[in-house]
Amino acid sequence: MSSKSSIRLTFVGTLFFFVFVTESVRINVTETRLNRVKLHLKKINKPSVKTIQSPDGDIIDCVHSHLQPAFDHPKLRGQRPLEPPLERPKGYNSSDERFETIQLWAELNEFCPEGTIPIRRTSEHDVLRANSIRRFGRKIRGVRHDTMSGGHEHAVAFVNGDQYYGAKASMNVWTPEVTDPNEFSLSQLWVTSGSFGNDLNTIEAGWQVSPELYGDGYPRFFTYWTTDAYQATGCYNLLCSGFVQTNSRIAIGAAISPRSSYNGQQFDIGVMIWKDPKHGHWWLQLGHGVLIGYWPSFLFTHLQKEASMIQFGGEIVNSRSRGYHTNTQMGSGHFADEGFGKAAYFRNLQVVDWDNSLLPLTNMHLLADHPNCYDIKAGKNNVWGNYIYYGGPGRNAGCQ
């Protein structure tokens, strides 16, 4: 055999060995990740007594309420959900909430048995869409509400400079376009305390469109919390131990139906978060007095006492994946000036004071990080009280 042939065979053999080893490593890494995903799913998908197939493809598991993920927390292990507080905040009146919330899975008129709660089942695909298992179900770190950070942009109304014990508002629900899978568009209430650096405590609830988290473009009812500025604590919905759900008819993370339409009928949801004066836990209510559950006070540091800021409005992530602002919409995808039936709104904005009383906002501030992309305007009348219109289309002639 010639020396050239020998060299050629050695090169081919080495190349084959390199490809084989590389492919083996890739397969092993994939298998390792899949095994980790399966272990994680086993942790968060609890055994169910009944399953319901939603028209949108979701699987809803009916899980014994004392076996939900919250009770994996060391301080809750072996306990059961608390009884609801006897009193709502003073001044609460459900008559201003015109529309019932309907979730797609509930259109079948099939619900979970008494003593169980409905939990949207997490799939392998859900987890694999995330950058890592550790980050699955969490917001990207670096979210700030006083400036743009990490691609996050806001159009919000807020109050600060006082002690707050909750907030309430009604918001109409839309289906905004989200351009890239790792972006989202949401509308929510924020109840916060601490600094935006490393010790921010926040409780959040509203609706969101998040293809990465849910795998589709439906607006979904969601919750969130963190006690360290989105670093290592907290999560969306029931994807970690934290929020304790008590309601057997609402699935957190499930799609909302119906939705508002441009120049058509408007559908909104009422959300109230308040601190129970007796036990100090933060309770969540949806719509006509429907209690969803609570965040135990021990989860937090600053929010064990009270909140220092309340915010209402929209947030999106702009990834600039193509080198310019994406077309991800906020709210209806239309600017605030277009008004009712066209722009997204929050109405009847209120806060809960030290005396557990609902009060209208005073000294309200408006913030739009990038008003050429998403803006906000406020008003007040006898029917809607304090209200805001907000949102926008994202990329346009003034938003590059």
Rank of each mutant, 00 (worst) to 15 (best):
F99I: 09
S132D: 04
K90A: 12
I140S: 07
G151M: 00
Q103L: 07
E124S: 13
A130D: 10
P81R: 02
R135Y: 04
E97Q: 15
L104A: 11
H145E: 05
R144A: 02
L82K: 10
R141W: 10
I133N: 00
Q79G: 09
R120I: 05
I133E: 03
G142R: 11
R138Q: 07
K90Q: 09
P84M: 06
E83M: 06
P113S: 02
E114P: 05
M148K: 14
K139E: 15
R121Y: 05
G115K: 00
G137H: 06
D96I: 15
G115L: 04
T101G: 15
R80G: 01
R88D: 07
I119C: 01
T116P: 02
G91A: 08
E124V: 15
R98D: 07
S132H: 05
E124H: 12
P113Q: 00
E110H: 06
R135E: 14
P85H: 06
L82R: 09
K90W: 01
K90F: 03
L128F: 05
G91I: 03
D146E: 06
V127K: 07
S94T: 12
K139N: 15
L86A: 12
R144Q: 05
R80L: 11
D146M: 07
Y92K: 07
L104Q: 07
P113M: 01
N109F: 06
E97A: 10
F136V: 07
S94Q: 12
S123H: 11
P84C: 11
R141K: 14
K90G: 11
G142Y: 07
I102W: 13
A130E: 12
I119N: 02
G137S: 10
A106W: 04
R98C: 11
S95F: 03
G91V: 04
T116V: 00
N131Y: 11
R134I: 11
P118I: 02
T116Q: 00
L108A: 04
E83H: 06
Q79C: 05
P89Y: 10
V127R: 02
E124I: 14
D146C: 06
R121M: 08
G142T: 04
I117G: 01
G151T: 02
E110I: 10
S132Q: 08
E100S: 09
R88C: 09
P89W: 01
Q103T: 06
I133W: 04
G150R: 02
D96A: 14
I119D: 02
A106N: 05
T101L: 15
E107K: 13
L104F: 10
E97V: 15
R88N: 12
R120E: 03
I119M: 08
P85K: 09
E97G: 15
P118T: 00
A106Y: 04
G115R: 00
S123T: 12
L108V: 03
G142H: 06
T147V: 14
R138I: 04
E124P: 08
G137L: 08
Y92P: 04
Q79N: 12
G150I: 02
N131A: 14
L104G: 09
Q79F: 08
G151S: 00
L82N: 08
L128E: 13
A106S: 13
G137W: 06
A106F: 00
G151L: 03
R98A: 11
H125L: 14
S123K: 13
F111E: 07
F136S: 01
E97Y: 15
E114S: 05
R98E: 08
R135P: 07
I119W: 00
E83A: 10
N109G: 01
L128G: 06
